[in-house]
Amino acid sequence: MSFNLLKMYLHFTKYQRTGIFLLFVIIIGLQLFYWLSDFTISETKNPEKEKWLALQSQFDNEKMVVENNKPVVFLFNPNFISDYKGYKLGMSVEEIDRLLAFRKENKYVNSVEEFQKVTGVSDSLLNKISPLFKFPDWVQHKKEIKLYSNNDYAKKEFPKKEKFEILDINQATQEDLIKIYGIGEGLSIRILKQKEIMGCFVSMDQMNDIWGLSPEVIKELNNHFKVIIPSTLKRINVNEASLKELSQFPYFKYVLAKQIVTYRSMNGDFKNIEDLAKIKDFPVEKAKIISLYLEY
């Protein structure tokens, strides 16, 4: 195609050139208008509506906090109240000790009235905590048990109750533990491993620290075993032990051991477990057990 032919196609009159120029101006103007204009719809603000929405949001947040902080209540058998549990319930040390002494005789409270008779708790405290008590089903349905006459007892022969020897838990073998109903190979190994870590058991309450033991199994263990602290138990001298030695004690963590060493260096030697309990994050619920592993 020659240059003259191309020039003929691209040749515009004066009016055509003016029209094309105006068209470009309009297009560029519309583009600038599109990019520079704000097409968002502005909503008319209502002060009362905004105030109500703010209050509603505050109500929702407070309701959520209350629901999250609502305590979960669990029923429990009062025969297995520990020192810490009794303290949380509001019982005094004397009341807790009465219950523990009663349980050491292998006796059980079977009613709210009997619990108050054994512990001596006040009526106000009893009314507060008794709704949380849960006794075994056979206690609740005791009245449904059939009563036999003397003739029935004379005719029926009952098997004699088998007597068993109460063993020292620190001398128990895996075979001894497996004889307990509810304990298999896995749980027996776990109990022996815990005894190895601690050096020995100093209280049957330590069974509650072993994962996987149900209250029923712990009850059977208490019926068949007792604790005899061996004379070979190497106690930790809390006033002389190093940070490493204290942190290796299972009931102490490194942070707590460091606080013990710091407190000891600033305030002098510890005299008893009460002095140790003053340290922040000390497991006071385990104080009686811990004290049996220490010396001063």
Rank of each mutant, 00 (worst) to 15 (best):
S2N: 10
L6V: 11
K7H: 03
H11K: 14
F12L: 08
Q16N: 03
Q16H: 02
I20M: 10
F21C: 02
F24D: 08
F24R: 10
V25T: 06
I27Q: 03
I28M: 07
L36A: 07
D38Q: 09
F39N: 05
T40K: 15
T40E: 15
K45G: 04
K45M: 13
N46T: 05
K49W: 15
E50H: 14
L53P: 10
A54Y: 14
Q56L: 14
F59E: 08
F59Q: 11
D60T: 14
K63C: 07
K63V: 13
V66W: 06
E67T: 09
P71K: 02
V72P: 02
V72D: 03
L75G: 15
F76A: 10
F76E: 05
N77E: 05
N77Q: 05
I81Q: 00
I81D: 02
Y87F: 14
Y87C: 01
K88W: 10
L89C: 02
I96N: 01
I96S: 05
R98V: 09
L99I: 07
L100N: 12
F102V: 07
R103G: 03
K107Q: 14
Y108G: 02
Y108T: 13
E113P: 00
F115Y: 05
Q116I: 12
Q116M: 11
Q116G: 14
V118Q: 02
D123A: 11
D123Y: 11
L125H: 07
N127P: 08
N127T: 13
I129G: 04
I129P: 06
S130K: 10
S130W: 14
S130P: 12
L132Q: 09
W138K: 08
K142A: 05
I145T: 13
I145E: 15
K146H: 14
S149R: 00
N150D: 04
D152C: 03
K155P: 00
P159R: 12
E162M: 08
K163R: 15
F164E: 13
L167R: 10
D168N: 15
I169Q: 08
I169R: 01
N170R: 01
N170H: 01
E175A: 13
E175C: 06
E175Y: 13
K179D: 02
I180A: 00
Y181I: 04
Y181K: 13
I183H: 03
S188H: 08
K193G: 06
Q194F: 13
V202C: 07
V202S: 06
D205W: 04
M207T: 09
D209C: 05
W211F: 13
S214C: 00
V217A: 01
V217N: 04
K219W: 10
E220P: 02
E220S: 07
N223F: 03
F225Q: 11
K226A: 01
I228C: 07
R235N: 12
V238E: 00
N239F: 03
E240G: 05
L243R: 04
E245H: 01
S247C: 06
F252W: 04
F252K: 02
V255A: 11
L256S: 03
K258C: 01
Q259H: 15
I260T: 00
V261E: 02
V261G: 01
S265Y: 03
S265I: 06
N267D: 03
K271R: 15
D275C: 01
K278T: 04
I279G: 00
P283L: 10
P283Q: 06
K286M: 12
K286H: 15
A287P: 06
I289Q: 14
S291G: 11
S291N: 15
